[in-house]
Nucleic acid binder design. Structure first.
Lengths: 234, 234
DNA sequence: ATTTGGTTCAACCATACGGTTGAACTCAAA
DNA sequence: TTTGAGTTCAACCGTATGGTTGAACCAAAT
């Protein structure tokens, strides 16, 4: 039981993560993973039995550690939608800046094998302790319900909450999924792109709220938000 | 020289298109393509020499016929940005409803092999006849320039045009790329999803303009737009 | 010093897969 | 009817790739 992070198992997983994220399941070669880990190919099978099992472990881990926590934000009934959006978008960008290939990887494998991934997703998002087992997903107001509420109050535009959700997700993912085309089209260096992503975090929040909120409510919100930011940063 | 569409070559291309779009290059099997086409595997090599060449033909065709025309809209200097956006988003949705797997397919292969795809993209978007060869891309006002112009006039919010472009693209692609998760999350039947996409077309335009335009200009625009629509439909 | 269980490896195996061969069929031109 | 180019196929080949074997190494326990 040596240092956990430098154990062979962890080294393999890290190498496999890289290769699978670059090449996808079918594009990845066991030999390539072994090379990247600097070990014998046998080791992969010794620790993870088969390519499929190694892949499943990686995918499961990535999904549970990185995506599931974000999904949970949008189901937290304690949190106001506006806070849900802010935390989701920030969380998404902060996570994906560290793992830029993850969105495309997850989406691609998802599309190739929806059935399997859906099972996995259910496992990965455990029913939170405060929720009654009888009402697994609907315990309180959700993202959608809160938006409808805001519409009734006259704060929000009369939009389909699902359309907003898809737009928000799309704005989040696209900067990572299409990085190369964006970077090429606008002739950005890697540093410039990182800066672009850093700015984008707040931009996506702004875009989402411009879509969601009626203009006067948006202005009010923005003032309040700017003050909060100043307080937090000092 | 028999009927073009039912020629063996076309049958093969159609089958290959399906398999490649479902499985990606490395996931696709020549045998599977042959089976889908209902012919002997030999035929694939007879007509297209190798898997790589068959793939290249498909990819090039899909890109040139379906994506390039859309990209051209955003570079048309004769067209006002607002018109560019409307035509792009409509065109995108109308194309992708017919070829729902195309966005993820293109993006995934692009990410795996950016160098090659970029070459292809340059070939696919020919310099239009009216343009001087000396200024291949910058012959007149572009998407970006027009937006900056609109900001100066006080019609548009002071946003980074690149951020808007990425948001718009993301809103377009996401509905197709993440179809299964969206459909599952909102428990939609296939018909309901088609309806969702049909609505989405106008929604994305609306969202984009809400991000882009100052509220009063947006209201003015919307009135004008609604009238135009009535005129067109009658 | 010996055993034992976990770990590592080079070499090997079976199969899947991309690609090839050579023969046969079709059909139009001569 | 013959010829020949274009087309189709079953069977085959070579290699890449996922997976296995059996032996060696090493550290801790006896």
């Amino acid at each position: 039981m040596t240092n956990k992070d430098s154990s062979t198992e962890e080294i393999i997983k890290e190498a496999a993560r890289n290769v699978f994220q670059r090449q996808g399941f079918s594009g990845a070669r066991m030999q390539e993973i072994a090379d990247e880990a600097g070990i014998n190919k046998m080791m992969l099978h010794y620790y993870f039995r088969s390519k499929q099992q190694l892949f499943d472990v990686i995918f499961q881990e990535d999904y549970s550690n990185l995506m599931a926590p974000l999904a949970v934000i949008l189901r937290n009934p304690e949190l106001h939608v506006e806070q849900q959006i802010i935390r989701f978008v920030r969380g998404y960008h902060e996570t994906m800046v560290e793992h830029p290939r993850l969105p495309l990887f997850l989406i691609h494998e998802f599309a190739k094998n929806p059935h399997k991934v859906l099972e996995m997703a259910q496992k990965a998002i455990p029913v939170s302790k405060s929720e009654e087992p009888a009402h697994p997903q609907l315990s309180a107001t959700t993202f959608m319900d809160q938006i409808d509420e805001g519409i009734e109050k006259g704060h929000y535009n009369e939009i389909d909450a699902r359309q907003l959700a898809v737009s928000m997700l799309g704005m989040c993912t696209h900067a990572f999924i299409s990085r190369i085309s964006v970077q090429t089209a606008y002739e950005m260096s890697d540093e410039q792109y990182m800066k672009f992503l850093e700015e984008r975090k707040e931009q996506v929040i702004d875009h989402t709220f411009r879509i969601l909120m009626k203009p006067d409510y948006y202005v009010k919100w923005k003032k309040k938000y700017q003050k909060e930011k100043e307080n937090t940063s000092t």
